[in-house]
Amino acid sequence: MAVKKDYKDQVLVEKLRDRKYYIPDSNPEFIKEVEKIGLTPAHMCYQCGTCTGSCPSAPRSSYRIRLFMRKAILGLEDEILTDPDLWLCTTCYSCTDRCPRDLAPTDVIMAMRNLAARRDIVPRNFLKTTQLIYNTGHGVPNNDANRAARLKLGLEADPETTHKYPEFLVGIRKLLDHYGLKEKADRILAEGE
């Protein structure tokens, strides 16, 4: 456990905060959970940095996929799941393609996003996509301007999807409700307002 400093000055408390890594701060189960969801043996990472070197997000941000791999192995669950950088992976899979240990760092990130979502940590745009799919079947639904354009092309105003056959939405909603996803999206989005 980190040394607690009861200094009067809160600024100094933060400035001099104990930054050591302590075993009790880590959750050894975390990496196992990540591997179960991500379907990749993440604990085999040997920290070569091929992933970060391949990453389109790394040069323009503080996002370091290698560090996420390291922290996952060390079980630094809280640090990972509350880090906004977790959401900067474009899932381009370049790291996965090149990883010499044959791991899928991209899927490790996806798994950790899933675990963050269990704690209700999800960026709003992700939740809005969920709501749209629940309501329309589409993450990017049709609109009137597009309907007009479609008609001009000789297509029907609505495509042969849930748009044209909304009766299929019943099944889709059952699937989403099975996981309580719509409720979760509504709740988190409402809390944020």
């Binding site: 969801i37 959401w87 474009t90 899932t91 996806m110 798994a111 996003r113 899933n114 979502a117 999800v122 745009n125 992700f126 939740l127 996509t129 969920t130 799919i133 079947g137 589409h138 993450g139 990017v140 042969e160 999807t161 849930t162 044209k164 056959y165 009766e167 299929f168 889709i172 699937l175 989403l176 996981y179 996803l181």
Partner: peptide
């Protein structure tokens, strides 16, 4: 393919819960 939906978006949707 009648009644198809969003694939659903692998990143935006899979990030929340891969099972769904």
């Amino acid at each position: 393919l009648k009644g198809a939906s969003c694939c659903p978006a692998p990143g935006a949707f899979g990030a929340i819960d891969l099972n769904i």
